[in-house]
């Protein structure tokens, strides 16, 4: 049985987010008023917030996870950590060290059952950037290096989950080989899980969520096929979560969304991070 390891402070899990910071990420995400880089940065910041929320107990944030964020393309041909002075960090450290805090509004229900607006503090760990080319191979190599070290320290942990958000093909070579090496890495509980989300700038683009065969992707789109081949097959726990949300998945479905809008991006991030949090001890 794989992907069943209990996640505890002794055996934490790892989430590693990879985010494309190439110039084209400055274009609007299809169906929204904001750029792909803004929506992607906001979505990942929100997902980290959610993870911290799930790890928060009365005594503080428990280190059930380590977190890393790699940005690629902010500087030409460069991939780097987006966390200040750190690569992979325990989640409690992230909770203590946001880059800045924003005040946001949420609706809560008062004792009389009325919805009232309430302010709350929302942390931001990194800002959107859209600047140069798409050195995805370099990002994957950096991820591979970090994960190699992490697995050496956590050989029996829940396998690392890597989530890559991009809108275009790698400009620094073929990412297939390094992606294969990445998903061949494993703990005793299973192989590294590699998720890919392709963002679309086309307003009414048809998203393809968790496709199970390459044939459903646009013909002659090498990049779409590449991301499909690089993506892991969805393990059982993730598949169940997708089915609960009425998404069509089967035993061959890949951890991949092509032509994602904001809803699909949020859904992928949520499903990609939720299944492991069900193993918290």
């Amino acid at each position: 049985m794989t992907y069943n390891a209990e996640i505890s402070r002794r055996n934490p899990g790892l989430f590693l987010f990879l985010i494309d910071q190439s110039r084209s990420m400055s274009h609007k995400l299809g169906g929204t008023l904001r750029s792909k880089s803004q929506e992607a940065a906001d979505a990942i910041n929100r997902q980290i917030y959610e993870l911290i929320y799930r790890c928060t107990k009365s005594d503080g944030v428990r280190d059930y996870f380590d977190i890393g964020i790699i940005g690629y393309g902010a500087v030409s041909d460069t991939a780097q950590s987006l966390l200040k002075d750190a690569d992979l960090v325990p989640i409690s450290r992230l909770a203590e060290t946001p880059l800045r805090m924003e005040r946001r509004q949420e609706t809560i229900t008062d004792p009389e059952g009325n919805d009232v607006e309430s302010e709350f503090e929302f942390p931001v760990w990194f800002e959107p950037v859209a600047n140069s080319n798409t050195p995805m191979v370099k990002a994957l190599k950096l991820a591979q290096q970090w994960i190699d070290d992490w697995i050496a320290e956590h050989p029996d942990s829940y396998p690392p989950v890597v989530i890559n958000i991009s809108d275009g093909a790698a400009t620094d070579g073929d990412p297939m080989e390094v992606a294969r090496e990445l998903v061949d890495m494993s703990t005793s509980d299973g192989n590294v899980l590699f998720w890919n989300c392709h963002l679309s700038e086309v307003k009414d683009a048809q998203p393809l969520t968790f496709p199970s065969e390459e044939g459903v992707l646009p013909p002659n789109d090498k990049f779409a096929s590449q991301l499909f081949q690089m993506s892991s097959v969805l393990p059982e726990g993730f598949k169940r979560l997708a089915q609960e949300r009425s998404l069509e998945v089967n035993d061959s479905s890949r951890a991949y969304v092509f032509n994602a809008g904001l809803d699909e991006l949020m859904e992928l991030l949520d499903i990609g991070t939720r299944a492991p949090t069900e193993n918290l001890q």
Binding site: Y53, T56, G60, A95, E96, M101, I108, S118, F120, E121
Partner: peptide, 10 residues
């Protein structure tokens, strides 16, 4: 309370 306890304790 720090922000993470404040936000969850609501």
């Amino acid at each position: 309370l720090p922000w993470y306890l404040k936000n969850k304790s609501v």
